[in-house]
Amino acid sequence: MRKKIIGCLVVLSFGALFTGGCAKKDVVRSEEPISAVQTAPPTAQTTPAEVARPAQPVQPAQEARPEAQGGATAQPMTETTPTREPAVAQEAPKAGQAAKAPAAELQAELQKIYFNFDSADLSEESRGVLSKNADYLSKQPSVKVRIEGNCDERGSDDYNMALGERRAKAAKDYLVNLGIASDRLATISYGEEKPVDQGHDEAAWAQNRRDEFVIVK
C-alpha cells in the first residue's frame, strides 16, 4: 500500500512537472508570430539618438582640453640627445700586449684553460696548464696578470657573467695555492661577451669556455 502511494506520488509529480513545463512552452510558442511582426516597425523607427539618450543619462560633453594637453606635449620631446662620449680606453688587454718584448714573450707562454658547460671545475688538463703558467709567473716576479673568465653563448648571459667570474677565480685560487702572490692576480669576467670563435657549434663553444691570462704590467 505504502509503495503504491509513493508510486502514485512520484508519477503524479512527474506528470505535474511535465504538464507545467508544457503549459509554459505553449504560451511562449503561440505568441511567436505576433512578436515577430510587432518588433519590426519600432526597429526602423527609433533613431539612434533617441534610444541612446535614456540609456545613458549622464553624458558629459567631453571636449578637447587644449591647454592641459597642449602644454604637456609642447615640451621638447627630443629628449634623448646624449652627449657623445670620447671613445674611452680600450679594455686593458691591448695595453698589456703592447708592453715590453719580454712581456710579449711571456704572454705567449701563458696558456688558456678550458671548461665544461656550466662548470668552473678545473680539469686534470687545466691543472697541468696552470702549473706551467705558475712556473713562468714565478720566474717573472714583477709581472702582474689578469685572469679573464669567458663562457659560451648557450647559457643565460646574466648567469654567465657570474660563471665567468667563477672560472677566473677558480684559476686564481689554484695559482695562489701554487705560490703566486694573490696581489699579482686580478680577475674579470666577460661572460659570453668576448667569444674567440663566433661559430654556433660545440667546437666553437668549447673554445669559448675558457680562462685567458693577460699580462697587465
Partner: peptide, 19 residues
C-alpha cells in the same frame, strides 16, 4: 540596423509574449 536585424532573427526563436 545590422545588429538589430540579427537580433530579430534570433528573437523569433526564443519568442516573446504578445503585447
Amino acid at each position: 540596423a545590422e545588429v538589430l536585424e540579427r537580433l530579430k532573427k534570433k528573437g523569433t526563436r526564443t519568442g516573446m509574449p504578445g503585447a
